[in-house]
Simulated assay, not measured.
Amino acid sequence: MAAAARVTLADVYRAHERIMPYIHKTPVFTNATFDKLIGRNAFFKAENLQKTGSFKARGALNAVMSLRERNANAAGVVTHSTGNHGQALAWAAQTVGLKCAVIVPRDTPQVKKDAITSYGAELVLCEPTPQSRQETCQRVAEEQGLEFVPPFDHHDVIAGQGTIGMELLKQAPDLDAILVPVSGGGMASGIAIAAKAMKPDIKIYLVEAEGKMCEKSLRAGERLWPNPPRFLNTIADGIRMQHLGHLTFPILVDLAEKDVFSISDADMIKGMKFAFERMKLVIEAASGAAVVAAMSDKLAAMDKDMKNIGVILCGGNVDIDKLPWY
């Protein structure tokens, strides 16, 4: 899709109207202990409580419903995913009665593989490399006549994820900034589009796993990553994509802050533990990254007038038999 077809707030509103009968309007939580710890007010958008356990349900359902509107005879959909988008697309396809196939790396947590198949999707395993994911997905799409719905680089997916930002600002209208975990950038782009349109002075900060190079890319104005592309070595399987997307990158260059929070696995565990122990919320490592970014010295050193911080808890799909601190 051409960059000229950038998602707008109107697209996000249409996505909201389309998907709201089927998804949860997730709650926003606060925690007095956390606020005292960081010296600001934090508002946690609990997408870990969303359908399929992550924010991905929004974009996947909007994409599938939009496909059905365009082509009533569509054979089905296919995607490649580390788990959350795969689960979401499988659920969305089941919701509207479409066939779905999901390509996942062999090392994807079993809990996510089981969830994908529980929604009736065909599970196809590939090697844990971006190239293998793409090649396997293309082969399955051609063999079965399925439409590819990518995890992030898709107009309808971005618009669906943007409903998070729209909801959050209605629930917490005084936000000064939002911390968003980022992999390919679909959620971050959607939230940035919606939030900046509704409140132009709000700041959108990306939260990445160490090694992603988002800050260098945003400051350089070009997508930077190792050649060949690879996945990051991180416990946060939901944000291990090495680079931002073709569609999402220019959006984030325009709308996100150039300061990026780069989080280690050890710190993600700290964020997860805080949510588990003090908030009684099950979150995955990618969500833990956003929590600990709000606790970081980097945020502490920023503008003290930035009083109210949104924190996106993007998912809660963890294998409870393999928690990362054991």
Score class of each variant (00 low, 15 high):
residue 234 T to Y: 07
residue 215 E to H: 13
residue 298 K to G: 00
residue 287 S to F: 02
residue 250 P to C: 13
residue 245 G to I: 01
residue 220 A to T: 13
residue 282 V to N: 07
residue 207 V to S: 05
residue 250 P to W: 12
residue 209 A to C: 14
residue 236 A to C: 14
residue 220 A to I: 04
residue 299 L to R: 02
residue 222 E to Y: 13
residue 234 T to E: 10
residue 273 K to V: 11
residue 231 F to T: 08
residue 238 G to K: 05
residue 252 L to G: 11
residue 213 M to K: 14
residue 264 S to M: 04
residue 295 M to F: 15
residue 264 S to R: 14
residue 231 F to L: 13
residue 221 G to M: 11
residue 212 K to W: 06
residue 223 R to D: 04
residue 240 R to S: 10
residue 296 S to R: 03
residue 291 V to R: 03
residue 272 M to T: 02
residue 277 E to Y: 04
residue 265 D to R: 11
residue 258 K to M: 05
residue 249 F to P: 02
residue 280 K to F: 02
residue 259 D to R: 15
residue 218 L to C: 04
residue 216 K to Q: 14
residue 285 A to L: 03
residue 274 F to S: 02
residue 209 A to G: 10
residue 275 A to G: 01
residue 272 M to F: 05
residue 215 E to N: 12
residue 271 G to E: 05
residue 222 E to V: 14
residue 297 D to N: 12
residue 290 A to K: 02
residue 263 I to K: 07
residue 261 F to R: 09
residue 244 L to S: 12
residue 293 A to H: 08
residue 241 M to C: 14
residue 268 M to W: 01
residue 240 R to Y: 05
residue 227 N to L: 11
residue 289 A to Y: 07
residue 230 R to W: 00
residue 283 I to N: 00
residue 290 A to L: 08
residue 230 R to E: 14
residue 231 F to N: 09
residue 284 E to S: 09
residue 301 A to T: 09
residue 225 W to R: 12
residue 221 G to C: 11
residue 251 I to H: 04
residue 298 K to F: 07
residue 289 A to R: 01
residue 217 S to T: 04
residue 211 G to P: 02
residue 298 K to Q: 15
residue 242 Q to S: 13
residue 217 S to D: 11
residue 281 L to N: 01
residue 299 L to T: 07
residue 239 I to L: 10
residue 269 I to D: 07
residue 275 A to I: 03
residue 257 E to I: 01
residue 266 A to I: 01
residue 295 M to E: 02
residue 259 D to Q: 13
residue 253 V to W: 06
residue 246 H to V: 11
residue 251 I to G: 01
residue 221 G to Y: 10
residue 263 I to Q: 12
